[in-house]
Write a protein that binds this DNA or RNA. Sequence first.
DNA 1: GACCAACATTGGTCCGGCCAACATTGGATG
DNA 2: CATCCAATGTTGGCCGGACCAATGTTGGTC
Lengths: 156, 156
Amino acid sequence: MLSGMPMRHQPDRTPDRVKDRPTWIVSRVFARSSALLAAAFEAHADGLRGYHYRLLAALEQWGAASQADLSRGTGIDRSDVTGGLTEMEGRGLVERRPDPEHKRRNIVTITEAGREALLRLDDIVDGVQAELLAPLSPAQRKQFIEMGRLVADRRA
Amino acid sequence: MLSGMPMRHQPDRTPDRVKDRPTWIVSRVFARSSALLAAAFEAHADGLRGYHYRLLAALEQWGAASQADLSRGTGIDRSDVTGGLTEMEGRGLVERRPDPEHKRRNIVTITEAGREALLRLDDIVDGVQAELLAPLSPAQRKQFIEMGRLVADRRA
DNA sequence: GACCAACATTGGTCCGGCCAACATTGGATG
DNA sequence: CATCCAATGTTGGCCGGACCAATGTTGGTC
């Protein structure tokens, strides 16, 4: 794929018609971003992954929510929300209790330990941002991000 | 993951600490790029995918090669090269014949039909580039690509 | 009371990147 | 020459992320 590409590929020999195309470059940027994130989470996040970070972030920002709300808010599939929450519940980062008014619904809240974990993850993720953008000047970083936003937000 | 994200997610509600991070934006750009490519290939590539395109491009540019060479040159795993070539051989886009000097080795060549297919795929892929970069001005496109190169090529 | 929609959960699918094992073959080294 | 090792092509599988389907339950509606 011009998008799905190897994580460890040396670009020394990539066909010209491939390696100069924006879609290819985008895929390589993404690969680098993913690799940095994976390494950082692996090293410091104690088993937590991006799913968990996004769920904690959503809970912190929007307060208690049902799992369905979390799914809609984060774009994570309902079933994956279930799994992620179960893992975090076991670590005491999150609490699930049935909604008294709608028995079928769970109300999910972030715990104090959850907030602390979120802050730790913030640091980890911030470090990756710095590493990723290291090759760019501060001015370039702003431009790069802004252009990325433009490209990404174009409604398909 | 801050990188692995849903393909169909509406960014209307994404936690702030997530949605403003470069890694997140990168992942969304990649998602858009992937979606455009997938749609274009699905619609016009008659079953061929990125793997095939990259293999054809390599063969066209560097001439006949062994499968191991193709793997090294394109970064595609040996086993996936085998699979991709088998599919293309069935369509007559590529020919495999044993190397007379090294019996264990296959010499792979692109056929005339393969070159034609490659040109068709070129057009498809070009269309995606235009679509992807549509939100940017020509000057911005150059900058965006150049910055992407810088970020991607940073040796991990 | 019957029907339908929402919810949480289980248990998958699919696809791309990757790895392991294998039989074969060639080259290198003793 | 015999032995060992490296390279090659192939098969088969693993893993992780996104996604989907079916289920049991519950609530609201008509």
